[in-house]
């Protein structure tokens, strides 16, 4: 979960789309909106990768005559919409985060850097905590007693809905549990 220049997860997180509204007419940028060669009209709403829209949003028109104005405005991505937040508040375990965004928490982290959304921050932290406990339960169940597969039917559903952070956590829990069992097995061999 480290974010560095070469971290593939950080790159993929930045590649997720965010709704962006252009505030200015931009000549020759129409190809973004499937109209190559035309001017991109102001007020156009496009889904752009986070890394691009972030740069556009923080940069402003550097002109001495007009007051400075940002190129685009960002909106909350649909995966962090109030509807999702309410669902997470109601029952964090039943939401399929992977369907919303592969890097759900990563996206949340980046968005929280740009927006001051206390509510979203609270909900994300609470659901991370709740789901982490569930993940660790599943991770310790898997492979115990040599069954290998999932023991409970509803577990499959939940595990399929994990985002990348959660998968990483699952892997860690599982690995530490496995290392422990391997050691205990070794003790028995000697």
């Amino acid at each position: 979960m480290s974010s560095s220049y070469y971290d593939i997860d950080a790159i993929l997180t930045d590649a997720q789309k965010v709704p962006t509204t252009f505030e200015l007419d931009i000549p020759a940028l129409g190809y973004l909106d499937n109209a190559a060669g035309h001017t991109l009209k102001s007020g156009t709403r496009l889904d752009l990768p986070l890394w691009l829209s972030e740069m556009l949003a923080v940069s402003s028109t550097a002109s001495s005559t007009t007051p400075s104005k940002s190129l685009v405005t960002l909106d909350l991505p649909p995966s962090l919409a109030p509807r999702v937040m309410n669902a997470l508040k109601a029952d964090p375990k039943s939401v399929d985060l992977r369907a919303l965004a592969q890097h759900f928490y990563g996206l949340g982290e980046r968005i929280l850097e740009l927006f001051e959304e206390d509510e979203v921050c609270n909900v994300l932290m609470a659901s991370w905590r709740k789901r982490a406990a569930e993940i660790s339960d599943h991770a310790s169940q898997v492979g115990q007693g040599g069954r290998g597969g999932m023991a409970s039917g509803d577990g499959v559903e939940f595990l399929r809905g994990l985002d990348e952070w959660e998968r990483d956590l699952f892997r860690r829990c599982h690995d530490s549990g496995k290392a422990m069992r391997v050691w205990m097995g070794e003790v028995k061999k000697n």
């Binding site: 979960m1 928490y105 949340g108 982290e109 929280l112 850097e113 921050c121 994300l124 932290m125 991370w128 905590r129 982490a132 660790s136 991770a139 952070w165 990483d168 956590l169 860690r172 829990c173 690995d175 530490s176």
Partner: peptide
Amino acid sequence: GFIVGVMDGLRKLGS
């Protein structure tokens, strides 16, 4: 693994 992972996540979300 688990505790550090959870703490890391919380720290990032709250950063």
